[in-house]
Design a protein around this nucleic acid. Structure first.
Lengths: 249, 249
DNA sequence: CTAAATTATGCAAAAAAATGCATTTTTTAT
DNA sequence: ATAAAAAATGCATTTTTTTGCATAATTTAG
C-alpha cells in the first residue's frame, strides 16, 4: 500500500468519524503504530489534520457558517453611522436596504426608538428582530443568493404601496455624474423603488467609495438628501458633492 | 476517547447549559473528576471558560449576537432529519417552517438538489441562501420577534396562492387528540396555511415532544403524512400514532 | 466554627510518542 | 542493468503524557 493511499484512507476516515485513533489505524492498515504516527505527523505538517495524544482530529472547523457575518472595518463604519443616529425619531416609517454599513447602523439603533422599519435584507432583519420597540416588516420575494436580499416584482409591488419618512440606502459606488450605481441590475431596480417610496433618502458609505461607478444606475446624486461619510463635512474632497446641494453629515 | 473530544464535549455542553458541573461531566464521560478538573484547567488556561468551584462557567458574556444561533442537541437533530433527506427530489416545490430542527435539516440538504423552497423563517433563509441550486423565496410580512418568522395577512396571502409538493413543518407539541399545537396564535395560523398549501406534510421532532400540547391548534394529527423522530419506526411509544395511519420514518 | 464537598498535589502505572538503528524497498544516476 | 542514495518501515529503548488514587489543603454552606 502506497503512502499516498494511506494518507487518503486516514483523511477519509477522519472526515467520517471526526477523529482517528492511532492504534485503530495500525490495525486497519496492518502497519506499526510508528508508521501511522509518522503519517499523522506528515499530515499535520501539511495542516490537513491536528495530531493529538492518541490520534488526530480535524483541523478545519465546519465550512464557513452563513451566520458568521464578517464586517470589514467595523470600527470605521461605526463612526460613520453613529453620525446618522440623530436622524431617527419615534414614529418614523423607515426603509433600510442591505449592506454591512447598514447592518452596523442597525446594531446601533437605540433600544428606546419606536419606529416601523421595512427591509429586504436578511442580515438586517435578523439584527433588528431583537430590537424591542421596532415594528419590523420584511419585504418578501425571490432571494438574491450572495447579497441575502430579496428582489423581483414582489418586492417592487410592496414598495410601491408604502410611503416611508426616511430611507437608508447602501451605496456600492457613488460619483457626481452618474450618482448612485450598483453591480447588479435587480438590486438597482429595487433600490430605485425604495428611494421613490421615501420622503428623505440617506446614504452612508466610506469615503473610498466616492468617485467610483458600477454598471447599473440607481438614482441621480441630487435625489439624495443626505450623505454620511467618514470625512469631515467640510473636507475638500466633498466639494463637488456639496455644490449639488446634498446635506453632508 | 481523545482528550480533544472531551474538550469539545465540554465546550458544547457549556454553551448549551451555560455551565458545567465537574461531577456530572465525570459521570457523562466515565472518567475521574481529577481528569475533568485537569481538562477544565486546560480550557481555562486557553481562556475558553472560567473554572469555578464545582465546575466551570462561560468565560465571556458575549453581547448576545443575534447571529449566534445555538442549536441544542444538534447531533440528535441531525440524526432525525437525515432520515427525511430521502423525501427530497429535484424539481419539488417545498415549504419550510422555522425551528432549529428544520434549520439543521436545511444545512443537510445536498448541494445537488434543484428545488424551489418557500420559507418564512429568517435563519432558514439565511442558511438556504448559500445553497447553489435552490430557488429561494422568502415570504414577507410582519416579523415575529423571538421566533424570527413572518406572520400576518401578507404571509397567509402568499401561501394561499401557492401549491407546494411537500411541506416540512416544525412541531412545538404533538399529541394524538389535538394533533399539532403551538404556543403562539399567529404562528399557528400561518402553519395551518402552510399545510393547506401542500400536497404532503412532514413533521420532524424529538420524541420528547410526543404527548405534549400547547394552547393553539395547528392541525389534526391525520393531516400529517409523515412524522420523523429519533425513535425506531416500530417503537411502541409510537403505537397510537401509527394506528392513525401516519407514515413513520 | 464545623462538617461536607471540592480541589490541589505527589505519585505510580499505563499508554502513547519520540528516537536511534537495522532492514527492506524504492528511486536515482551512471 | 547496476550500484549508490534515499526513503520507508518496524523494533527496542527512552521519554513524555495521561490518568486515577491517596492524602492534604481549600472552599463552601449552615
Amino acid at each position: 500500500m502506497l503512502k499516498a493511499e494511506r494518507h487518503k484512507y486516514i483523511m477519509t476516515k477522519l472526515i467520517e468519524d471526526q477523529k482517528v485513533i492511532t492504534a485503530d489505524l495500525a490495525l486497519d492498515l496492518d502497519l506499526s503504530e510508528d508508521t501511522i504516527r509518522r503519517d499523522l505527523n506528515d499530515l499535520d505538517d501539511k495542516n490537513l489534520l491536528k495530531k493529538v495524544y492518541g490520534g488526530a482530529i480535524q483541523t478545519v472547523e465546519k465550512p464557513s457558517d452563513v451566520f458568521d457575518i464578517v464586517i470589514t472595518a467595523e470600527e470605521e463604519k461605526r463612526k460613520i453611522v453613529s453620525k446618522a443616529l440623530s436622524l431617527l425619531h419615534d414614529g418614523q416609517v423607515i426603509i433600510m436596504s442591505g449592506g454591512s454599513t447598514n447592518l452596523v447602523f442597525a446594531k446601533l439603533i437605540p433600544s428606546e426608538l419606536k419606529a416601523t422599519i421595512y427591509t429586504y435584507s436578511l442580515p438586517i432583519a435578523m439584527q433588528l428582530s431583537q430590537h424591542p420597540n421596532i415594528d419590523l416588516i420584511f419585504i418578501g420575494g425571490k432571494m438574491q443568493k450572495n447579497a441575502m436580499v430579496t428582489i423581483g416584482m414582489d418586492v417592487i409591488q410592496v414598495l410601491s404601496k408604502i410611503k416611508a419618512d426616511i430611507c437608508f440606502i447602501g451605496a456600492s459606488s457613488i460619483n457626481v455624474k452618474q450618482g448612485l450605481t450598483e453591480v447588479g441590475y435587480e438590486v438597482s431596480i429595487v433600490k430605485k423603488a425604495m428611494i421613490d417610496s421615501s420622503d428623505k433618502v440617506i446614504s452612508m458609505f466610506a469615503s473610498h467609495k466616492l468617485n467610483t461607478k458600477m454598471p447599473h444606475i440607481v438614482c441621480d446624486f441630487n435625489q439624495l438628501d443626505t450623505i454620511v461619510t467618514d470625512l469631515d463635512p467640510e473636507d475638500s474632497r466633498l466639494d463637488e458633492y456639496r455644490k449639488l446641494g446634498v446635506f453632508i453629515l
